[in-house]
Design a protein around this nucleic acid. Structure first.
Lengths: 237, 237
DNA sequence: CGCGGAATTGAAAGACGTCAAACTGTGTGG
DNA sequence: CCACACAGTTTGACGTCTTTCAATTCCGCG
């Protein structure tokens, strides 16, 4: 399997969880450094390049993952071969929770950007979860969050006209890091796969937004966003 | 609040969990009768008529529910006032898991049929979950199942042409109780709200299926289904 | 500088939404 | 028991949106 080899080669070595900068904000928040001493199997890290597959739907593997950096798409393939993107995994998110229940993965997980992940053996997480109520609760929170996001995906990104959906998606992807509202778009094909519209329709609408000045190119794939105009389009407009 | 009164009046009294026929197949499978002795607060049952609201989005209440009989829809309202049905709760399903995390409900829960539910105080379920690994695992399973269903809703019922979606929905609702494949449809408006299409489009397609003999009326709202024809339409057709 | 994949654009056909009218059946009151 | 009223369903006509298929342009990269 291609991705298996690529995974092995991408190992960056053992994770130093005690030093991990994002430790407090992710799954193991609430764990003390000493708790990691209980872990005998080492936690390994992997890196993925855009297009690399992390895991496949139906595959059974006792591992879940936290994303330290990058962006992962969860994909399902339809009977006719086209794909539908079901959810995005962002930095500090967890994916592959199915592994905790010995269930096969529900989606294909594919990197959209250069990504770094920690690989967590399901047995260890299950054990820590039993011993540590805070981690256990955090796990439930993760599940709940994934569910809430799935529902929002349905109501925001799969409802209304194509124009509304694109507007909502861009708003969803936009955030302000001090220099005004900015967002990074991905390929038109992926936009289409997220919204349930064709590549051409996605392209037309994005191009139209640019002509109207609602999107202003900053660099390749990165735009300055007129959030007010988009908010208007997202509702009735 | 109207629904609050209606809930009170609909109480059918305390549940006899030890005798509950569906106990083994639902959330508390794995619990012994004696475990119920630990429960001090009584578990109450409620009944709902079609259209009754079980809970509202944003509402915070320390209660979750198992559906003993009937059908519940989970609904989100869009900015323009139209509704989108996000998931169905069927017999033996659990809803309101958010309450376990002290979070407000994510949807409006509205009965579509005469329904009977058990009301489970979140504190009790949390306590039993801590003491009983089997229940705890079953809870995780419920969460996972809800998530899988949400994703399937997106890929099956919110993707492709209106005709494909209706075909998939009917297949989804069809099952064979020995006398051939049958299904019970609900109102055209609700079909539309589930699939993200208009009432008229839903009506046209259902009417067309009937003319073609793909659906044959048995009684009001109940049909005999040509599953093969529908399967063809659900994919490429 | 040229190659190749991605993005854009055009034209025509088809699908879907919108608005309005006709129809059905279900329950109610006379 | 019948007739009426009302809500849900069906159908029609029309306009708009989206897809489809194809051609062209753009852009990053070797």
């Amino acid at each position: 399997m291609l991705e298996k080899i690529s995974l092995k080669e991408a190992w960056t070595g053992l994770a130093d969880c005690g030093q991990c900068a994002i430790r407090k904000s992710v799954l193991f928040a609430g764990l003390e450094v000493q708790d990691f001493g209980k872990i005998h199997d080492p936690i390994v890290q992997i890196e993925l390049a855009p297009g690399d597959t992390l895991y496949r739907a139906g595959e059974r593997s006792p591992r879940l993952f936290t994303l330290r950096k990058g962006l992962i798409k969860l994909v399902r393939y339809l009977p006719d071969g086209t794909q539908r993107i079901v959810r995005l995994i962002r930095s500090t998110d967890v994916t592959g929770l199915e592994a905790l229940l010995d269930k096969p993965y529900e989606h294909h997980a594919i990197a959209m950007q250069d990504s770094e992940l920690c690989v967590l053996p399901a047995a260890i997480v299950n054990q820590l979860s039993r011993e540590n109520p805070a981690l256990h609760r955090e796990l439930l929170n993760r599940w709940q969050r994934a569910l809430a996001e799935a529902d929002q995906w349905l109501t925001d990104l799969s409802t209304g006209s194509a124009r509304q959906r694109v507007a909502r998606l861009i708003l969803h992807l936009t955030h302000d890091d001090g220099d005004g509202p900015r967002c990074t778009l991905f390929s038109r094909e992926e936009i289409g796969a997220m919204l349930g519209i064709t590549t051409e329709t996605a392209s037309r609408i994005v191009a139209d937004f640019r002509r109207r000045g609602i999107l202003r190119t900053i660099e390749s794939k990165r735009y300055e966003v007129d959030t007010e105009a988009l908010a208007g389009l997202a509702d009735g407009g």
